[in-house]
Amino acid sequence: MTGKKIIIAVVFIAFFLLIGISIGAVINVSDDQMRERSLQTLQDSEGRDNHHAVGLNLLDTESEAVINTEEPLRDIIQDNEVTVVNFFASWCEPCKRETPELNEYAQDTADSDVQVVGINIDDSVKNRDEFLKTYDVQYPVFELADEADMTKEFKISLMPTTFFIDSNGEVVRAYIGEIGPELITNYINYVKERQ
């Protein structure tokens, strides 16, 4: 009897281990498949985006340089095939997490036709400057001359929000939330293919 109970216990343990491993594999595969599917959907879409800013033009936005550039935002947009415009604030936790990656991305694409730009909104000068120093931001950062009107017109209410703009100043894509390098590259490729 004891040997039979041991065999039954071993079978049950093996059964539950197998189920646990199977569930873990399904969850991992599902996460990878979901990420692949979302990136593929982005690539296959026809440019439809449900953010209000898509289709608007950023060239007429007046801004003031904060650091790292003497070049106006308008010139940066027109001189590059794609401009990645990231709206951020120093108090925003996702902004803090994504800024090092944006900084690295900007440095990696410095000699290309892509430019990363930051626009600081809803912030104090002191906090903004501390943020830029803490994260050693190397890409051009601007503040808006008329922040209230611009954020209202472009419906920027959540941080971070990132626009992908073509050389004509049109917002082709918009992404709300923390963004990483892989998704940035996919959005940039989408804008380039569209032109």
Results as ranks from 00 to 15, higher is better:
33 Q>R: 13
64 E>G: 08
28 N>Q: 05
65 A>G: 12
35 R>C: 03
36 E>Y: 04
57 N>S: 12
88 F>E: 08
54 V>F: 06
57 N>K: 05
40 Q>V: 06
60 D>W: 09
78 Q>N: 07
45 S>I: 01
81 E>T: 06
92 C>W: 09
90 S>Y: 09
106 A>P: 12
96 K>A: 09
43 Q>W: 06
65 A>R: 09
83 T>G: 02
95 C>R: 06
84 V>L: 15
39 L>G: 11
32 D>F: 03
51 H>P: 03
71 E>T: 14
75 D>V: 10
51 H>R: 04
94 P>Q: 02
82 V>Q: 00
74 R>Q: 13
88 F>W: 15
101 E>G: 03
93 E>R: 09
53 A>I: 08
31 D>P: 06
75 D>W: 01
100 P>Y: 08
102 L>N: 04
52 H>K: 15
72 P>A: 05
54 V>S: 03
105 Y>P: 00
27 I>F: 00
84 V>C: 10
59 L>T: 03
86 N>R: 04
102 L>F: 15
72 P>G: 05
69 T>R: 02
99 T>A: 08
103 N>C: 07
69 T>K: 07
65 A>H: 02
30 S>F: 09
99 T>V: 10
31 D>E: 12
68 N>Y: 06
95 C>Y: 05
67 I>K: 13
33 Q>N: 15
52 H>R: 13
53 A>K: 02
37 R>N: 12
37 R>M: 11
33 Q>Y: 15
36 E>Q: 10
56 L>M: 15
51 H>C: 03
37 R>Y: 15
74 R>I: 15
36 E>K: 05
80 N>S: 05
80 N>W: 01
83 T>V: 07
55 G>S: 04
70 E>K: 08
106 A>G: 03
91 W>I: 00
66 V>T: 13
96 K>P: 00
49 D>Q: 03
51 H>N: 14
71 E>C: 01
61 T>C: 07
99 T>F: 00
106 A>S: 14
57 N>M: 06
96 K>F: 03
89 A>M: 02
80 N>R: 02
77 I>Y: 00
81 E>W: 03
106 A>Q: 02
84 V>N: 14
72 P>D: 12
70 E>M: 03
97 R>G: 00
